[in-house]
Design a protein around this nucleic acid. Structure first.
Length: 228
DNA sequence: CCTGATGGCGATTCTTGCAG
DNA sequence: CTGCAAGAATCGCCATCAGG
């Protein structure tokens, strides 16, 4: 509880909250000067904000030689610490653990049901917006971007015209901790993504190239389009 | 020794809460 | 609404640190 209060206090300052958001969105670690420049604040202020975020374990820091001489600079990046805030108390984590354990007791059919439901939810995620068939490629990509943002995945997209493919990089997996304990969750997430893509593009094939659980920095998928 | 970066500290400005 | 006090945020300066 005390930790939650510290976290809410640390994030109550808008500048600090935006810095934290910025660090989540950045794929690279940031320096005091990066933050000072990005937010147009004095480096001392940036350092103060960063140390406050570090105090509550939202971010971690380490030193790295710059190669230019001088004192090594301090780099800040997102910690693995996950803080959940629910007011009043709700325990969706426990609920999902119970649901998942129930499914696993059902064996293979349970696992299949999990994947199918993941796929359906992925489709629904897209279908709630508008009729995808009428959208241009740019609009479809924007929709994917919006949906990913809503899901907190901080994803990057890269469309290659020559390959007719979309490289989809997830920098923050919302199921990471759960997936570490239960591999099925990761597969379910892949089905969820398939659902999203298939709702937008006909005859698409989605393949995984990177996975956080295998030590990669992010999860990357390549969606091969046959019909755009 | 020079350079570039950190971090401590005092001064100033801004914000908030409270009493009259 | 106004004035005041306290605390937080910010700024600027400077000592210190560490690599070339």
């Amino acid at each position: 509880m005390e930790q939650k209060l510290k976290v809410t206090n640390a994030l109550s300052d808008p500048t600090r909250f935006n810095i934290y958001q910025h660090i989540i969105e950045q794929m690279e670690a940031v320096t005091v000067n990066d933050i000072a420049e990005t937010f147009d604040i004095h480096p001392n202020v940036a350092r103060m904000h960063l140390s406050k975020l570090e105090d509550v374990d939202l971010i971690i820091s380490y030193t790295k030689k710059t190669g230019k001489g001088g004192r090594p600079s301090r780099l800040y990046e997102l910690s693995n610490h996950v803080i959940e805030l629910n007011f009043p108390h709700r325990d969706y984590k426990l609920l999902s653990a119970i649901a998942l354990e129930t499914l696993s007791k059902l064996g293979k059919p349970g696992e299949k049901a999990l994947f199918d439901t993941g796929f359906t939810y992925g489709q629904r995620m897209i279908d709630q917006y508008q009729d995808a068939s009428k959208l241009s490629l740019e609009q479809k990509l924007k929709l994917l971007r919006d949906a990913s943002k809503l899901l907190g995945m901080y994803a990057d997209f890269h469309y290659s015209e020559t390959d007719q493919s979309i490289t989809y990089t997830i920098n923050n997996c919302p199921f990471k901790e759960a997936a570490t304990k239960n591999e099925s969750i990761c597969h379910m997430h892949e089905f969820f993504l398939k659902g999203m893509f298939e709702s937008l593009f006909e005859g698409i094939t989605l393949s995984e190239t990177n996975n956080m659980l295998n030590g990669c920095k992010n999860c990357t998928y390549i969606a091969k389009l046959s019909v755009v």
